[in-house]
Design a protein around this nucleic acid. Sequence first.
DNA 1: TTGTTTATCAACCAGTTGGTTGACTATTTA
DNA 2: TAAATAGTCAACCAACTGGTTGATAAACAA
Lengths: 119, 119
Amino acid sequence: MHDTESDDDRLDRAFLALADPVRRNLVARLSRSSATVNELAEPFPMSKQAVSRHIQVLERAGLITRTRDGQRRPCHLAPAALEELTSWIDGYRLAAEARYRALDEVLAAMKTANRPQEE
Amino acid sequence: MHDTESDDDRLDRAFLALADPVRRNLVARLSRSSATVNELAEPFPMSKQAVSRHIQVLERAGLITRTRDGQRRPCHLAPAALEELTSWIDGYRLAAEARYRALDEVLAAMKTANRPQEE
DNA sequence: TTGTTTATCAACCAGTTGGTTGACTATTTA
DNA sequence: TAAATAGTCAACCAACTGGTTGATAAACAA
């Protein structure tokens, strides 16, 4: 299923999944322990169906996995998927920071070169 | 400006901003160097207005800043905002990983306790 | 001043998201 | 078997996204 899905699609779904306070709250909750739909839905002032759909969004994004335990469908956080996101972000963040540091050095060097005789 | 905005709102905007391949491409481009709207729009098969709006989404999310240079409005990546996102994710990722490691140890201990005489 | 370049604003439209309620499946329990 | 529990599916609706085109503002250049 979904053999031909691009990295872009995966990142789209993952970042979109995190762009909602309810779903981020679910991620936070699941980082403490796995939980069922009912357990996850309980704190929220909305229908269980709405929470179930939020869970599906997280699952399709690969951020959580689900197992079967009788009639329950426990949800488990998928740390590896979270790690992919931080890796993506950090690649560009570190490149930009390195560039800014290099620019600072150039500016510092120019400043020194312009006033070689000062203190 | 915007004194009464919650962390949730900021994270909503930032993750939503990254949940689009065009905007992620802009982030990647800006990690190499700052650039104007025209420069950023050039590679995309869409109107300059559409790219301008993507840039506004990134700016409102705090992921980029803009300066003025005559009639140009150069865009610059904001590494600190990216770092906030990785921090948020990593907090929960590391908690989950630690919990899973602890569970592995419990399971390993139970296995050993059940078969104390087996090698 | 006149015209060119850079960038944004406004109106419009198709598709998606996030909530609702009601019906349904599947599993467990009496 | 019948009834309760866990969860999903389907239809509906308001709000938002992401693209379009046309008009506009602001800074340069002639």
